[in-house]
Design a protein around this nucleic acid. Structure first.
Lengths: 124, 124
DNA sequence: CTAAACGCTCACATCGATGTCAGGGTCAAG
DNA sequence: CTTGACCCTGACATCGATGTGAGCGTTTAG
């Protein structure tokens, strides 16, 4: 498939797909005329990249992780594991931060609701 | 306290504190000479702002939420609740996304570990 | 062969929170 | 009054992923 179809299937813009390639996160074969061609499997790869990018994993870090998934090379595997573990820790921290923020928000909501309830009571 | 101390106590840079004020997220009284002065309670406010900003809540949205916490006004309270609920949903979605990414990462780590284990076996 | 739809590269723009620098006040201790 | 530490405003820079537009080539259906 060409870039338009991959874009349609993944929701990533053509621009983003070219960017992923530029960053080394995605490969493509080229037609004689220079147009990118992809296989079905690339759909999954793009989804993976999207998930990590959306999770705040910088593309530079992805470069060290994802290719290693496609072709785990003896030497790099160990190094990649370190990076992945580190990134996993960062993700967990981020999750904790978000959960804490949500908890704080819940308290605000609760306060606000209580305020409204009291207002309503006074009106009765 | 002046801005330097508030910065030291919260970890937010002086620049950020001024930015929060500029955005309407933080108030300060001014000395005759124009310097900002804060009370102890502002430490908590800054921490709250930091938590939400770190969680990806845009300052514009915070403006609609946080002030309402300080001074819940009859009319705005209901509107603020809507915004808070909406933002809470967004936070939950983000959390789900991060958790999904972490799960995907766990699978990659597992694959990688399995690969390394097989390598080690062959060496024996 | 032609036109429409699609793709290519290059380059500049965007957003939000923060960093950084310049030029110039303020405050407190001596 | 002076000095050193602190603060002020304003402006420009940064980062990363993506948007956008120009100018031009490719592919494919008719």
């Amino acid at each position: 498939m060409r870039i338009g179809e991959l874009s349609a299937r993944t929701g990533a813009s053509r621009r983003s797909l070219r960017y992923y390639e530029e960053q080394g996160l995605l490969v493509s074969s080229r037609s004689p005329g220079g147009q990118r061609h992809y296989e079905d499997e690339h759909v999954q790869r793009v989804r993976l990249v999207q998930a990590f990018l959306a999770a705040g994993v910088p593309s530079g870090t992805l470069v060290e992780m994802v290719p290693c998934m496609a072709e785990p090379s003896e030497g790099r595997a160990r190094q990649a594991l370190e990076i992945m573990d580190r990134e996993r820790a960062r993700l967990s921290e981020d999750i904790d931060g978000l959960v804490a923020a949500r908890d704080a928000l819940d308290r605000l909501i609760e306060d606000n609701r209580a305020y409204l309830t009291r207002s309503a009571d006074r009106e009765v």
